[in-house]
C-alpha cells in the first residue's frame, strides 16, 4: 500500500516538475509585460525538436542542446521584436491574441521544417529505474527535478544579484517608475522573452526522453504550464513550481485513488477552489487597482 502511494508520489513529482518547468516561462514574461504568452508551449516544442534534429544530424548531444537553446532564444527575441514590440501600446488582450497567432505560425513552420512524427531523445543517464521502498523512479525524472531546482536557484541569483535581473524585477513592480530611474524597459521586455524562451527550451529538452516530442507537443504542456503558473500566483517563480507540483501530484493521486478519466478534472477543480479563496493564486501579489 505504501509502495503504491510512493509510486503515485513519484509519478506526480515527475509530471509536476514538467509542468513547473513549463510554467516558469509564463511567469517571467508576465512579470515584464503582464502578457500571457500563449506561444510559451512552442518554445518547449522548438527546444525538443531542434535537439532531436541536431542529434539526428550527428551533432553530439551536449552541443545539440546548447544550439537548440540558442535557436529557441532567437525565436523568443524575434517574437518580441517583430510581434510584441510593434504592438506594445495595444491592450493586453490584443497582445494575447498576437501570441496565439504566433503559436499557430510557429507550429505551421515546425510541421514543414521538421515533420509531424513523434521523436525521442535517449535518457541522459540510462533507463534503469531506481527502486525505493517498492516504488520505482526513472533517472530522467531526477534530471527533470534537478534542472527545475537549478533553474529556480539560477533565477533567484539573476533577479537579486545582477543589474539586468533587478531591472526586470523593478519593471514588473512599476514600469513607469523603472523608466524614470533609467531602466530601459524595452530591453527588459526583449530579455524577458529571451529568458523564457531559454527556460522553455531547457524544459522541452529535458522532458523529451520522457514524453517524446512532435510539432504539437507545446499545446498541452503550455496549457498545463499556464495552469501551474496561475495556481502558484503569476509572476512568482516559486509559485509556478509549487503550482506545477500540486497539479502533477493531484493528477497522479486522482488517477491512483479515484478515477483516471477524471484526473485532469480533479486538478482543475483544485485550481478553481484555490482561486475562489485566494484570488491571486498561492503566492501572487494582490495588487490594488489604480483608478
Amino acid at each position: 500500500m505504501l509502495a503504491s502511494f510512493l509510486q503515485f508520489v513519484f509519478s506526480g513529482i515527475t509530471v509536476g516538475s514538467i509542468y513547473a518547468l513549463c510554467g516558469l516561462g509564463f511567469s517571467i514574461i508576465f512579470n515584464a509585460s503582464h502578457v500571457i504568452n500563449f506561444a510559451q508551449g512552442e518554445f518547449i516544442m522548438i527546444g525538443g525538436m531542434a535537439t532531436v534534429s541536431l542529434v539526428a544530424l550527428g551533432v553530439p548531444l551536449p552541443v545539440a542542446i546548447l544550439l537548440a537553446i540558442l535557436a529557441t532564444m532567437l525565436v523568443g527575441f524575434a517574437l518580441e521584436k517583430f510581434a510584441v514590440e510593434p504592438a506594445r501600446k495595444a491592450s493586453v488582450t490584443t497582445l494575447i491574441i498576437i501570441t496565439i497567432g504566433a503559436s499557430i505560425f510557429l507550429r505551421g513552420i515546425a510541421q514543414e521544417l521538421w515533420d509531424k512524427n513523434f521523436h525521442k531523445l535517449p535518457p541522459f543517464s540510462g533507463d534503469q529505474p531506481f527502486l525505493i521502498a517498492g516504488a520505482s523512479l526513472m533517472p530522467q525524472s531526477l534530471w527533470v527535478i534537478g534542472v527545475t531546482v537549478v533553474v529556480i536557484v539560477g533565477l533567484g541569483w539573476f533577479f537579486n544579484r545582477t543589474l539586468e535581473g533587478k531591472a526586470m524585477l523593478a519593471t514588473s513592480f512599476n514600469t513607469l517608475a523603472a523608466q524614470l530611474v533609467g531602466v530601459n524597459t524595452k530591453k527588459v521586455l526583449l530579455m524577458s522573452f529571451g529568458l523564457s524562451a531559454m527556460l522553455g527550451a531547457i524544459g522541452g529538452i529535458v522532458i523529451t526522453p520522457i514524453t517524446f516530442t512532435n510539432y504539437e507537443t507545446g499545446i498541452m504542456l503550455g496549457l498545463k504550464g499556464f495552469s501551474a503558473a496561475v495556481l502558484g500566483g503569476l509572476g512568482n517563480g516559486m509559485g509556478a513550481v509549487v503550482g506545477g507540483l500540486i497539479v502533477g501530484i493531484a493528477e497522479a493521486m486522482a488517477a491512483g485513488y479515484f478515477s483516471s478519466a477524471y484526473k485532469d478534472a480533479v486538478a482543475f477543480i483544485i485550481i478553481l477552489f484555490v482561486l475562489f479563496f485566494m484570488p491571486s493564486g498561492l503566492f501572487g501579489k494582490s495588487g490594488t487597482e489604480r483608478v
Binding site: T14, I210, A252
Partner: peptide, 20 residues
C-alpha cells in the same frame, strides 16, 4: 479498467493500480 488522457506524460499511477 483504466484510462489516460491523450498526451499524458506518465501513466505509472494507472499501471500501479493494475499491478496491485
Amino acid at each position: 479498467d483504466e484510462t489516460y488522457a491523450p498526451r499524458d506524460p506518465d501513466v505509472t499511477a494507472q499501471l500501479t493500480k493494475i499491478k496491485n
